[in-house]
Amino acid sequence: MKSLFNSKALISPFLIGAASFCYFNSSAAAWEVAQSEASFCPNANSQELYVAETRDYALFICSAENNRQLPKYYIGAPKDGSRQLTITLSNYDRENEIFVANNGEYTYTLDFSRRRLMVRFPNGRVRTDRLVNAWGPEDLGSQSAREN
């Protein structure tokens, strides 16, 4: 997947894991942090496969622990620093780069092909946010490339 966007965006502080904070500035992009030692994934054996951001959120699709090529987790990290959301994917279409996660009556659909995040609320209302930046596996590199 080629970068969907070429610009580097300013991202406010947001929560990583339980207690760490990460700050982006105008010279850094979400994928650069994904390539660093900081990780948004739920454990050390998982890695970021896809990274995106909307105006209000940094979004990550992380791999399974035992297969770093298999998408397993959706992570939504609000840029205002509030608690990040980690959900196991309920469905995905890797060819079209669409990832779906259900959290109770909420459904999160991260659609890289249409450059959008859709959130379906319990009352049926759907909120759609445009992805302002997005990167896939080719942009992020493999784990072995990150370690070199």
Rank of each mutant, 00 (worst) to 15 (best):
A58M: 09
A52D: 00
E95I: 07
Y92A: 04
R125C: 00
E48Y: 03
V100F: 04
L15Q: 15
L140T: 09
L49R: 00
E32L: 10
P137S: 06
T86Q: 10
F112S: 00
D111L: 09
N66K: 13
S12W: 11
E37K: 11
G17K: 12
Y106M: 15
T54E: 07
Q69A: 07
R130M: 12
L110K: 00
L10H: 14
K72W: 14
F24P: 02
N96F: 06
A38C: 06
I16W: 04
N66S: 13
A64S: 14
S90Y: 05
S27M: 02
V51M: 05
I16R: 10
S36W: 02
S63Y: 00
I98D: 06
F112K: 01
G141T: 06
Y74P: 01
S142K: 04
V33H: 03
P137C: 02
I11F: 08
N96K: 15
R127E: 08
L4R: 12
M118C: 03
Y23Q: 13
Q143S: 10
S7L: 13
F24M: 11
D80S: 07
A34T: 07
S46L: 00
Y92H: 12
R83N: 05
I75G: 01
W31I: 05
F14Q: 10
D93K: 07
F99A: 01
G104T: 07
F112C: 06
P42W: 08
K79W: 03
E105F: 13
